[in-house]
Write a protein that binds this DNA or RNA. Structure first.
Ligand SMILES: Nc1ncnc2c1ncn2[C@@H]1O[C@H](COP(=O)(O)OP(=O)(O)OP(=O)(O)O)[C@@H](O)[C@H]1O
Length: 757
DNA sequence: GTAAGCCGACTTTTT
DNA sequence: GTCGGCTTAC
């Protein structure tokens, strides 16, 4: 332990503040020093919530209120966890290593390994990824003769996961909770899915938390052990916790009550994953006597950026409401720029990046933040052309690539013989002549004997159920796995991996492949071996793969960052580019269709998160046309643009576009260049309608412009720009009466609604 | 049992 | 325009 801190002054000593308290304003310091009892730091973006948490960790440890391993600190992403550990380490040294700091899932996995047997698992359980989950569920659907066309596995899995997010195990559900889904059998399918996971000695992501909560609820002695252990609990991004996470925290904190959560209801962007804004809204009821600290000074952004974000988010209802101010003077307005299409957008952003670079701004302080992962693509292409180094966060992750997963499946099967999903994945990769028929035989044997596939395979090989060729192939495969399992004792993980890739013929398979991707895949296999080298044991590596989906990139080169708005939460950049602000893209149409007004508000929070990532410069772009599903569509500027304060934005449009817009909502988007004058609007409509322009233009905008109103039937589901989804109650020519889910009964023109799913 | 080729879905967001 | 899943032909 580091003793150089022992003679630090007591907290509260007026002079000579310890360094970790120096960079804090009075309310922040208040939050750090209120160590006992529940504390909620409720504050807007950039007010130093995360700084409070790191300082609090340092404070607790340096004042010896707790040893590092007696503190539980929870973050949302692995990156946030890493960053927090680094920052605390900078203040307190290597002791930071011993803090129980990580994501909900990583911490839950660590606890579950210790007590797995209490929920019928072995401590070696595998953690399944989405791919495995889906394959498992599909098998169950097949066995139950559920029509997958009608009930896509993805959809059903989604429902099951939402149940898990809410802490609902199958026994807590009644048959009716599944509704009509899958012929009313969804709850039963869920039960089968869970039963199957136990046989496979496996967990999915949701189970990690669900199981540990079950254990805490059913084994008070185990819970008591952790009450003694964890004296302080700290939670980042509390607004995005779901019900299980909340239950878990409450169980752990109920004894000491020393829980400090930080969050911002305006940054809640994970409702689609089961996050409950309610958790933060009712914190003081869950933890009576909670101290609520509000932080109001924003240290990150300039005044115009803050004003833009604040004005936008004010359009949401049911907010807790927060004040935000800055003492920063000046600052450029938020630039809002209209362009013709996606490639012009990419070109302009690329040019601006280069121009900023020439002015001495580093690429590392810039980011392009998009609504959906696929949108990074056009920028990648442009940046590649310009030779601007970039990195993409998220997207297709290293450990999710097919060849990497295959290789890992070999390791999984060696570590955990019951891992059927790994078994199936590689039993015939590379081709060994074990096809569908053989696999079905194995499955039947496994189901019959209640065994995992590999165990059943031994029995089958000993019998004469398979044709000689297949029997030989299966037997050879089992022997190989056994041998590698023996080798695993003596070799390093990297050596083992290399040997497996070599001896299994997996590398050879890709070497023989002459498709253009093959070299890249071989390269990834080499990269995998490098990744494995960093781990001491096979289980440690596999745990990492399951929980940390990204591979830490170690480039020294300055790069611009491309990522989704979701991934950007908690980060900050001098310059932020926000492309794709068009109706349907952002706010995302599906979000609107599926969750109506709630979805819109979450989209708006996402926009708020986006703008508030910027310290000095924010650029918002919207394109008039985009190719979506290989079809050209004309798009209206996002309604969020009309929600920005005129005084703090600087509107412009690319040549040939000026004035060519109409407001996308009834709230007039009346910026300088967007006069919305009839003549401009007509010219725009004419341009769209002109067949000579080539690309097929479809979509709502056309319908609005040409005045064609489709016929609607009573009872039909429709979508309206402003009111969301609803059901037609009366159809009178082009006048409709619609009962909207969020907005109630309204009279609308047929031209302003469209058919909804 | 395997490979090629066709068809349809896909673009939300992540631990 | 691309990917994955399924069918078909060998
Ligand atoms: N008291 C302070 N004095 C000066 N700068 C500060 C202070 N507190 C925080 N900052 C700086 O303000 C910025 C935002 O801090 P931080 O990331 O902790 O905010 P946050 O509330 O977690 O933001 P968000 O919710 O947007 O993620 C950081 O650059 C941080 O260094």
């Amino acid at each position: 332990m580091n003793d150089s801190f022992t003679d630090l002054p007591e907290p509260g000593t007026p002079d000579a503040l310890p360094p970790y308290l120096m960079g804090l304003n009075p309310p922040q310091r208040d939050a750090v020093e209120a160590t006992e009892g529940p504390v909620l730091v409720l504050a807007g973006a950039g007010t130093g919530k995360t700084r409070v948490l790191t300082s609090r960790l340092a404070h607790l440890i340096l004042t010896r209120r707790a040893q590092p391993w007696q503190i539980l600190a929870v973050t949302f992403t692995n990156r946030a966890a890493r960053e927090m550990r680094d920052r605390v380490a900078a203040q307190i040294g290597p002791m930071a290593q011993d803090i129980w700091l990580g994501t909900f899932h990583a911490l839950a996995a660590r606890l579950l390994r210790r007590h797995a047997e209490l929920v019928g698992l072995k401590s070696t359980f595998s953690i399944l990824d989405t791919d495995d989950q889906l394959r498992l569920l599909k098998q169950i659907l097949q066995a139950n003769a559920v029509d997958e066309k009608r009930w896509p596995a993805k959809l059903l899995l989604g429902t099951i996961e939402r149940w898990k997010d809410r802490g609902l195990t199958p026994d807590k559900l009644s048959i009716d909770d599944g509704g009509e889904t899958a012929g009313g059998r969804l709850v039963d399918l869920y039960r089968q899915y869970q039963d199957r996971l136990k046989i496979l000695n496996a967990c999915d992501f949701g189970d990690l938390l669900l199981h540990i909560v079950t254990i805490f609820q059913q084994h008070p002695d185990v819970l008591a052990e952790y009450h003694r252990k964890f004296r302080y609990i700290l939670v980042d991004e509390y607004q995005d916790t779901n019900v299980v996470q909340y239950l878990w925290l409450r169980l752990l904190a109920q004894q000491s009550k020393n829980i400090c959560c930080v969050g911002d209801d305006d940054q809640s962007i994970y409702a689609w994953r089961g996050a409950e804004i309610d958790n933060i809204l009712k914190f003081d009821k869950d933890f009576p006597g909670a101290k609520i600290v509000r932080l109001e000074q924003n240290y990150r952004s300039t005044a115009p950026i803050l004003a833009a974000a604040g004005h936008l988010i004010a359009h949401n209802e049911g907010r807790l409401g927060k004040t935000l101010w800055t003492d920063k003077d000046g600052g450029a307005p938020v630039k809002v720029r209209g362009v013709w299409d996606g490639s012009e957008e990419a070109r302009e952003i690329g040019d601006e990046i280069e121009s900023l670079q020439r002015d001495g701004h580093g690429l590392g302080s810039m980011a392009i933040l998009v609504r959906a992962g696929f949108q990074t693509r056009e920028f990648e292409e442009r940046l590649l052309t310009l030779g601007v180094p970039y990195r993409v966060i998220g997207g297709l992750r290293f450990y999710e690539r097919a060849e990497v997963r295959d290789a890992i499946a070999y390791l999984r099967l060696i570590a955990q013989p019951d891992d059927d999903l790994a078994f199936e994945r590689i039993v015939n990769v590379p081709r060994r002549g074990i096809g569908d028929v053989a696999l079905q035989t194995l499955h039947r044997a496994a189901r019959g004997a209640g065994l995992s596939l590999s165990l059943a395979a031994y029995e089958v090989v000993a019998s004469d159920e398979l044709k000689p060729a297949a029997r030989k192939a299966v037997s050879g495969f089992l022997t190989a796995i056994d041998r590698w399992r023996q080798l695993a004792q003596g070799l390093s993980v990297a050596e083992l991996t290399e040997q497996i890739l070599d001896e299994s013929g997996y590398t050879a398979m890709w070497q023989a492949d002459k498709s253009p991707e093959a070299p890249g895949r071989l390269e990834n296999l080499k990269e995998l071996v490098r990744a494995v080298e960093e781990f001491e044991s096979l289980p440690a590596f596999l745990e990492h793969v399951s929980l940390v989906t990204e591979r830490a990139e170690n480039s020294q080169e300055e790069q611009i960052t491309l990522m989704t708005l979701h991934a950007a939460k908690g980060l900050e950049f001098d310059t932020v580019f926000l492309p794709g602000w068009e109706e349907g893209v952002f706010p995302n149409q599906r979000s609107l269709d599926e969750t109506g007004a709630r979805g819109l508000e979450e989209e708006r929070r996402l926009a708020y998160v986006g703008i508030t990532r910027a310290k000095a410069r924010a650029y918002i772009f919207h394109a008039a046309n985009r190719r979506i599903h290989n079809q050209w569509q004309s798009l209206l500027p996002s309604r969020f643009l009309s929600e920005l304060p005129q005084a703090d934005i600087d509107l412009s449009a690319a040549t040939g576009l000026a004035g060519a817009y109409r407001a996308s909502s009834t709230e007039t988007y009346s910026g300088a260049s967007y006069g919305g004058g009839e003549s401009n609007g007509d010219r725009w409509a004419a341009r769209r309608a002109a067949p000579s322009r080539g690309p097929v233009i479809e979509g709502r905008a056309t319908r609005l412009a040409t005045g064609q109103s489709p016929r609607f039937q009573v009872g039909e589901r429709v979508f309206h720009q402003k009111f969301g989804t609803g059901t037609v109650e009366i159809a009178d020519g082009d006048k409709l009466q619609v009962s909207f889910e969020a907005a109630g009964v309204k009279h609308v023109m047929a031209a302003f609604v469209e058919k909804s799913a």
